[in-house]
Nucleic acid binder design. Structure first.
Lengths: 164, 164
DNA sequence: GTCAGTGCAAACTTTTTGCAACTAC
DNA sequence: GTAGTTGCAAAAAGTTTGCACTGAC
């Protein structure tokens, strides 16, 4: 992404943040602005712990309590997404990024972003009765090619052991 | 389900359990047998805590450590499925139940079983390159009809407040 | 008899809560 | 000035680990 369009993204997300806060009679604090800046300075999935670390690096330490408070709000403002691929949450920025869903390997935990495709279109076209699908929160689990091969090998070996 | 077919299920899952344990040179313990019995005596999603409670009711208390150890093994044996709809795991029995995927409301947390349907078939037919989809671990998130309506009401109200 | 399995308690990780001090409005 | 926001520390919730004892094979 060019510096210029990255600057545009910062301006846009700050606008969204401030609109959201005003609409909900909440306050624009340095913490909130900096958290959003920091989130949008990084690509990909991250944990609260990582976000905390990034803020430390910026010399803008923010307590975990504040982070947990504010991610809730940012999710509601549609600036942040939270995913539970396992017992602890992973987050990712939302605004300005290509819409995608997630493909997860049940064995190695690999998470792959998949840009909206025929499957997404198909699911949206089905108008699941009464239920409004959010295609950004679609999760397809299975086995990645590496784990598929590894598992085949393992099964052949344990088969041999069992026969012996 | 009739008592008779329920008895068949018990026999089958015990067979699967014992085959799995033998194949992996592991031991058939009363705890493992009872845990499987208890899981298959209940329908729907449950937490480890609930499983622990059910075992207490049976006068067969099993420690949490043992439960955590054994669910791992039962998942590998395909007798149990684990889902992360939120920060803590939900489990459900697998064998003998109608195959289904899950539809989850992001707002109220409602989890709905959806029997394999056109969407599942479509995804399986796409043969995602190199990735082996497990349709039992497909998750579609969105808004249920109740929350969709509630959210519309809320937005109308906050709109009014904002204008005033 | 051996070694996997168990219970217990302690540790650990992640997230939530209570409260006093602070600050955006 | 007021009430929302923050940081800190404690607590809660969920899960993992270490170790001595037990019991399946």
């Amino acid at each position: 992404m060019s510096d210029e369009s990255q600057d545009n993204i910062y301006a846009e997300v700050h606008q969204i943040l401030e609109d959201y806060l005003h609409a909900h009679r909440l306050r624009v604090t340095p913490e909130r602005s900096t958290i959003v800046d920091t989130i949008y300075a990084h690509e990909g999935h991250f944990t609260i712990e990582m976000l905390h670390g990034w803020l430390m690096e910026r010399r803008f330490p923010v307590s975990m309590a504040t982070l947990y408070n504010n991610v809730e709000l940012l999710i509601d403002a549609k600036l942040l997404a939270r995913h539970y691929f396992g017992p602890s949450a992973l987050y990712e920025r939302v605004h300005g990024d290509e819409p995608h869903y997630h493909r997860v390997c049940k064995r190695c935990g690999m998470v792959q972003d998949v840009h909206f495709d025929a499957i997404t279109n198909y699911i949206m076209s089905k108008h699941i009765r009464g239920f409004l699908v959010d295609p950004s929160y679609l999760y397809v689990y299975g086995l990645c090619s590496k784990c598929k091969a590894a598992l085949r090998r393992k099964q052949r070996n344990s088969q041999k052991k069992y026969e012996s």
